[in-house]
């Protein structure tokens, strides 16, 4: 029964990260303006905007991938992956909330992306490889 609280905690942290990512994707204007100089051309705005859109979309894809691995039961009861995933997605949710409210410059997003989206996705890939190729599981 020690694991029973771990599963919903991880799920809710991932959902929080998912919701915040979609919210930023829909309202990213102030963050894009925060990483531009005072006088900027539409060209500069567009390039920064595209950069942020790409980052958020890749983060969404990685989150969906991780949710599939989680809800498919591959890493659901794996406590080390659950710990990595829960802590990183929780910190992603907190820092993305600050990202919106304090209008962080959009370059800061890549730190959140690297530590809180890419890293748990990579460990999830390792878990999947271990589970499918080497029958290490559960």
């Amino acid at each position: 029964m020690a694991v029973s609280g771990l599963v919903p905690a991880r799920f809710l942290c991932m959902i929080a990260h998912l919701v915040l990512t979609i919210v930023i994707l829909l309202s990213r204007d102030s963050n894009v303006k925060a990483c531009l100089p005072l006088n900027y051309s539409p060209n500069e705005y567009d390039s920064k905007d595209t950069e942020l859109i790409v980052g958020l979309s890749v983060a969404l894809g990685l989150l969906v991938f991780e949710l599939v691995g989680f809800m498919g039961g591959i890493s659901m009861f794996m406590s080390s992956q659950a710990m990595i995933s829960t802590t990183l997605h929780a910190s992603a949710a907190v820092s993305l909330a600050y990202f919106i409210f304090d209008a962080w410059p959009c370059g800061h997003y890549w730190y959140i992306f690297g530590f809180c989206s890419a890293f748990p996705a990579v460990t999830e890939i390792f878990v999947m490889i271990g589970s499918f190729a080497f029958n290490k599981g559960i």
Binding site: P8, I15, G73
Partner: peptide, 18 residues
């Protein structure tokens, strides 16, 4: 059905958050 049970269980937690 195991997938159905997983969905119902997680939906309960999700609805609490919602």
């Amino acid at each position: 059905s195991l997938p159905y049970q997983i969905l119902l269980y997680l939906n309960g937690w999700y609805f609490a958050l919602f």
